[in-house]
Design a protein around this nucleic acid. Structure first.
Length: 462
RNA sequence: GCACGGGUGGCAGAGUAGCUAUGCAACGGACUGCAGAUCCGUGGACCCGGGUGCAAAUCCCGGCCUGUGCUCCA
């Protein structure tokens, strides 16, 4: 069985092939830490977490790099407003990001390079580009000149130079900068008074947005690497700019084997984004749903499709998640093998994941196993698939502790409940339905649900 | 406007030519004083119009709708 991955550049699913047998170098564009992370971020890093996990489960040795853009205009805006150093804002939001990702069982990347720790490599890369004639110095910074390699344009979006040159339907006014052409992009921005800056041969300044990723990937992986991931919105200009920078710097192409882009989280059919202001932070979402239930929700749609976030969607996922945990807990406590054959489920699960990481189809297999007869083999299967690969399970100790806690809560009220149930049975025998229902209501107010069955009433706590 | 995606039953979402997707919801039955849980079962879809094929949700052409990108953005 082969793993097929959709590549944005070739616009097709292809069998994964890597530069080095058995190894995968993966770079995913990280956050700009100017505010707490929102659900759009969660979706992205959850998606690539599953990519990471499945590659490892498939036997690959994955080297995963994710950057932090810890200096940027918006960070500066906020640090100005608060009267603190930009690093305070960046560090605070990076911590928030790592916390919520940990809570959602996102495995850490191997490296988290920061722009401010990559300045010398960035300057080196820009000067190579300048030496090779791809960059020029403008009034306010250094720019990449698209016209030096026009054939590289449009690889991820299919746009041609002419159509962008034409002015995007009149939307491109003056560039307000020292660019020669509005399609050129900044490599180095000269500092305005009071801004944090670093020394360079072009003057005090800081890196443009796109160059960091090229410098970091070159730094960690060398001239080429296997997978580059990020949100769909980064295809242009960010990722196309990276192609220009990296390939013009090293002369090697393609810089990236597979470009992967995740779809958006939408609210009312519109992209959730900080600029539109229609976002929920991950922490806000935690108030209504547990981190893992949220993880379940966001993985229940294939990573390239948009997710339309509604309360119903989240509640549906939370329900499935609870069933999963219940099944896992019961399987853990049943020490005997129930003899269920799970090989078909394993095969279908693997086929789903091998088809461009189709977590939706994989979760359907999990749901099928959840409704199978519980036994120790079910616990083992769930740990391997729902746990290791999808990251949906808490520690077994935690689940068992939850069960124990529920048991003791049950014990606490058991005597009283049993007494009331006995009285209710007496009422039922004498067909005093009013009294029987009254007792049931009373139990309900204690959080006890009564379910009559052929063997008499059963009860559980809500 | 241009580019790239997507339009499948109430919802989510598989399916790239022929054989039930699946889950939730709905409906029916069993069970039940009622309710709930459970079990069994049922119905229901392929945006529109052309074309190619013995056969199209699936391929081709046209149209419509929608998302994203073209500006900071996961």
């Amino acid at each position: 069985m082969t793993l097929r991955v959709y590549d944005t550049r070739m616009r097709e699913k292809r069998e994964l092939s890597t530069l080095e047998e058995g190894k995968v170098s993966m770079y995913v564009c990280g956050i700009t830490p100017y505010s707490p992370s929102h659900l759009g971020h969660a979706r992205c890093y959850l998606a690539f977490d599953v990519v990471h996990r499945w590659l490892e489960a498939s036997g690959y040795d994955v080297d995963y790099v994710q950057n932090f853009t810890d200096i940027d205009d918006k960070i500066l805006d906020i640090s100005d407003a608060e009267g603190v150093d930009y690093s305070v804002v960046a560090n605070r939001n990076i911590e928030d990001y790592l916390d919520v990702m940990d809570a959602m069982n996102v495995l850490r990347a191997d490296h988290y390079p920061r722009v401010t720790e990559t300045i010398s490599e960035i300057i080196e890369m820009i000067s190579v580009l300048q030496d090779k004639g791809h960059a020029y110095v403008g009034d306010d910074g250094v720019y990449f000149e698209i016209d030096t390699v026009p054939e590289k344009f449009g690889q991820l979006t299919g746009q041609t130079l002419d159509m962008v040159r034409a002015g995007a339907g009149g939307r491109v006014a003056d560039t307000g900068s020292g660019k020669r052409d509005h399609r050129d992009f900044a490599l180095w921005k000269l500092a305005k008074p009071g801004e944090p800056s670093w020394e360079s041969q072009w003057g005090e300044g800081r890196p443009g947005w796109h160059i960091e990723c090229s410098a970091m990937s070159l730094n960690h992986f060398g001239e080429q690497f296997d997978i580059h991931g990020g949100g769909h919105d980064l295809r242009f200009p960010h990722h196309e700019a990276e192609i220009f920078q990296s390939e013009c710097c090293t002369g090697r192409e393609p810089v990236v084997g597979f470009w992967m882009h995740n779809g958006f989280v939408n609210v009312d059919g519109e992209k959730m984004s900080k600029s539109l202001g229609n976002f929920w932070t991950i922490r806000e979402a935690f108030q209504n749903h547990t981190p893992l239930a949220l993880r379940y929700a966001l993985l229940s749609v294939p990573y390239r499709n948009p997710i339309d976030l509604t309360p119903e969607f989240l509640e549906d996922a939370a329900m499935h998640f609870e069933r999963l945990i219940e099944a896992y807990g019961k399987s853990l406590s049943s020490h005997a093998d129930s003899g269920t054959d799970l090989s078909g489920a394993s095969e279908r699960f693997a086929a789903a994941m091998n088809d461009d990481f189709n977590t939706r189809a994989a979760i359907i297999e999990v749901q099928a196993v959840v409704s199978a007869e519980y036994g120790s083999e079910v616990a083992a299967w769930l740990e391997k698939h729902a746990g290791e690969v999808l990251g949906l399970l808490p520690d077994s100790e935690e689940v068992l502790a939850g069960l124990a806690k529920a048991d003791s809560a049950r014990e606490e009220v058991a005597v009283r409940v049993e007494a009331l149930l006995k009285e209710r049975e007496t009422s039922r025998e004498s067909k005093d339905w009013a009294r029987a229902d009254e007792i049931r209501d009373e139990l309900a107010s204690m959080g006890v649900v009564v379910e009559d069955g052929p063997d008499g009433p059963a009860w559980r706590l809500t």
